[in-house]
């Protein structure tokens, strides 16, 4: 009887594993697809060319369109988009990379943003226990861009003293430069003077009150808005 039990159990396990293995797989990608794409910079200042690079699953020509108009078909794995073309499509140029082959994946669509005037560059909303966030991980920034404004828009799932969701102030530690403080009476927003260079990891921590994770166990939710502008190019004497 024990042998029968184990054999039935093994049958059940085999059947479950078989169904699970069908469900855990996804279909093959088209024979031609992009392995990776780099856009440098994705956030640009006026006058800057943009370098596009890519690798494919197998060699094929790639057609590049900006603002819906095809610009070039190339078999190389990189190309340069001239500043004039991007300025013509400013402030946000839609870039489409299409593999010019049968059975190719759908075109990859990206945005290249030109900072002619000050504008929002990040509208982040995230759940994070460690209160850190990364600026536009996939984006590369023009070296002339500076963060000029920072606002903590909304906070949820945080329990601070006095049953408040938000503390009296937030201390922000950027990747470069000294920390700064955003106070409740200023709407948790401020202009940054001097402006800061964009970077990857920023830290945010409550100050003026003890805050802890709520009993629900949810990670704190924050939404943050950053504005930026291009620094004037250095004038040579």
């Amino acid at each position: 009887m024990t042998g029968l039990f184990f054999r039935r159990l093994a049958l059940g396990v085999v059947f479950a594993a078989g169904i699970a293995s069908i469900m855990s797989t996804s279909p093959p990608p088209p024979p031609f697809h992009f392995r990776d794409v780099s856009i440098n910079p994705a956030w640009r200042c006026p006058g800057a060319d943009v370098e596009i690079g890519w690798t494919l699953s197998r060699p094929a020509p790639v057609a590049i369109a900006v603002g819906g108009a095809e610009q070039v078909i190339t078999t190389a794995n990189r190309t340069t988009l001239p500043a004039e073309l991007l300025e013509h499509n400013a402030p946000v140029a839609e870039l489409a990379l299409r593999i010019d082959a049968e059975d190719a994946d759908v075109p990859n669509i990206y945005e290249i943003t030109t900072l002619g005037v000050e504008r929002t560059v990040e509208d982040l909303a995230f759940h994070e226990k460690n209160m850190t966030f990364r600026m536009n991980q996939g984006g590369l920034w023009d070296a002339r861009i500076r963060i000029t404004g920072f606002e903590v828009e909304q906070v949820r799932d945080l329990a601070c003293e006095g049953e408040a969701v938000s503390p009296p102030a937030w201390e922000i530690s950027p990747p470069f430069g000294a920390p700064f403080v955003l106070r409740a009476e200023q709407g948790y927003s401020d202009r940054l003077d001097p402006p800061l260079a964009p970077g990857s990891e920023w830290r945010i921590r409550p100050v003026g009150a003890k805050c802890r994770l709520p009993s629900s166990g949810l990670e704190p939710y924050l939404s943050i808005r950053l504005t930026a502008v291009c620094r004037q190019p250095d004038k040579s004497s």
Binding site: S24, T25, S26, P28, P29, P31, H33, R35, S57, R58
Partner: peptide, 18 residues
């Protein structure tokens, strides 16, 4: 296959050679 094609296979073991 590319990374993510099978849920339980770590990315380091996927070669995506086609």
């Amino acid at each position: 296959r590319p990374v993510g094609s099978i849920a339980f296979l770590p990315a380091g073991l996927v070669f995506d050679s086609g």
